Simulated scan of single mutants.
Amino acid sequence: MRIEGARILITGGSSGIGLALAHALLAKGAKVVVTGRRPDALANAVEALQRTAPSVWGVAADVASPEGRAATITQAVDLLGGLDVLVNNAGGVRAGRLENTPEAELLAMIDVDLVAPILLTRAALPMLRESGDAMVVNIASGIALIGAPFYATYAATKAGLACFGEALRRELKGEGIHVLTAYPGGTDTPMMKSNRAGPDLGFSREPASAVAAAIVDGIEANAFEVIRGGDARAQMIALNRDNPAAVDERFLGLKSALEDAVKDHSAL
């Protein structure tokens, strides 16, 4: 897909991967709308983005609510004059043992990580069809490929988002709308600040700019997926497919330390 001149909506674009992706796409000549539920943070992000490119706007809205989704689509299309790419990036996480996690926090994860992208994509499809060369980009997670203990619900939402994207790609095949799924690994973003797990527990972190650059390459190549983590991640994915019991044993050895390191990981 040609990015120059493309009209792109990025949810959760005021920080982290979304903000890095906005910078990368603007550098390629795209027109971008970023959304966020915190008006002050969004305003600061848009101000920073406008220093490098004028064709960027912000929409303050919570995509986890029906009103927020409606405002997001309506205002983005008005500002951009149409829509070529929807990036479903907004997300939230709450780690910890399932039985110790409040139901409200579980439902909040499901709403923002899975329900919101599905319904936002549904609402955007008429505008994407008008483009003739459009794309939906879903930001899943490496945990969608290898389920990690203490992230059961988060893994479920991200795996659900990935399967949603695969099925939708096939549903829209030949209709001018492609679907790409990205699987970031540990990324140095505000969402990860309360996670104290390090590389020894499987949580290496790379810059958000590196993840964004890989996603941009995937968009330009009309790729099906972008998986971060290099050879080590590829080997773990293969092991999880061929010998999941070995992965179970590996996590068993880390479980106590991992539980302590992620028990306060929350970004909802």
Score class of each variant (00 low, 15 high):
74 T>Q: 03
86 L>M: 07
84 D>F: 02
123 A>Q: 13
245 A>L: 14
60 A>H: 09
100 N>H: 07
156 A>H: 12
160 G>V: 13
142 G>W: 04
183 Y>T: 06
79 L>A: 09
255 K>L: 00
3 I>S: 10
268 L>D: 07
61 A>M: 07
234 A>S: 02
43 A>T: 13
56 V>P: 06
146 I>E: 11
119 L>G: 04
131 S>C: 04
107 L>D: 08
201 L>M: 05
182 A>C: 12
114 L>M: 05
258 L>T: 02
156 A>C: 12
170 R>P: 01
261 A>W: 05
29 G>S: 04
10 I>K: 10
3 I>F: 05
24 A>V: 06
145 L>R: 08
96 G>N: 02
4 E>D: 09
244 P>N: 09
152 A>N: 07
184 P>S: 09
268 L>Y: 03
23 H>N: 10
167 A>S: 10
11 T>D: 10
255 K>S: 12
32 V>K: 07
259 E>A: 02
108 A>M: 15
217 D>K: 05
168 L>W: 02
208 A>C: 15
259 E>S: 02
152 A>M: 12
116 A>L: 08
150 F>G: 07
5 G>C: 01
120 L>K: 11
242 D>I: 03
260 D>N: 05
128 L>N: 03
139 I>T: 15
262 V>M: 01
226 V>T: 10
9 L>G: 08
205 R>V: 14
107 L>S: 04
65 S>N: 10
156 A>W: 14
107 L>I: 03
248 D>Y: 14
218 G>P: 15
36 G>Q: 07
68 G>K: 15
140 A>H: 08
201 L>R: 15
153 T>Y: 03
105 E>Q: 00
67 E>M: 05
105 E>K: 01
91 G>Y: 11
150 F>Y: 14
13 G>W: 11
216 V>D: 04
26 L>V: 08
47 E>I: 06
214 A>S: 07
21 L>V: 15
160 G>P: 11
105 E>T: 01
241 R>W: 01
227 I>M: 00
248 D>T: 15
102 P>Y: 03
151 Y>K: 00
186 G>D: 11
32 V>Q: 03
126 P>D: 06
65 S>Y: 12
216 V>K: 05
47 E>W: 04
35 T>R: 09
111 D>I: 08
137 V>N: 04
126 P>G: 12
237 I>V: 06
162 A>G: 00
52 T>P: 04
199 P>K: 13
66 P>W: 15
95 A>L: 02
186 G>H: 15
201 L>P: 06
85 V>T: 10
18 G>R: 07
241 R>C: 05
220 E>N: 11
266 S>V: 09
176 G>T: 11
